[in-house]
Nucleic acid binder design. Structure first.
Length: 129
DNA sequence: GAGATGACGTCCA
DNA sequence: ATGGACGCCATCT
């Protein structure tokens, strides 16, 4: 039997002040230059831990919180430059956006390898600080 | 009000 | 390199 039930239960949490957290995420997304990509965890690591959230929980959940923020990302931001740590595009049930995301990245000169993976060593955005 | 449904990453065998 | 376990639920139908 799989224990995914309990894991799933713990997996999907939301930050205390969702809107505030989301805005912090979007602010970072807005800074990603054309032709570069960032991962969910990378963005998460740039955001300070909110008061009242345990260290352990924050570390475990923050990457997914970023995903949650991206689900309602303003369309004027370069949302397509956010991918997962595998170098792949994270799919929602809506694979239409998946195709659009790949198209936009290719238009910026980003190459996709076998299995639809992007080489993060080459394309990862490394902010000054 | 109940049920389905979520843009992930790290650590350890 | 690869696979599995684990990590404080809220929101929309």
């Amino acid at each position: 039997m799989k224990k995914t039930v309990r894991v799933t239960k713990l997996l999907f949490t939301t930050p205390p002040l969702r809107q505030v957290f989301n805005e912090q995420v979007w602010e970072i997304v807005a800074r990603v230059p054309k032709g570069k990509v960032v991962t969910y965890g990378q963005i998460a690591a740039m955001i300070p831990r909110p008061r009242g959230v345990g260290v352990k929980h924050f570390r475990a959940a923050r990457a997914r919180w970023v995903g949650g923020a991206m689900a309602s990302c303003p369309s004027n931001l370069p949302w397509h430059r956010v991918i997962n740590v595998q170098g792949k595009i994270s799919v929602r049930s809506n694979n239409k956006h998946h195709l659009l995301q790949r198209q936009r990245l290719e238009d910026e000169g980003i190459l996709f390898g076998a299995g639809g993976r992007i080489d993060l060593h080459v394309n990862r955005w490394r902010p000054r600080k």
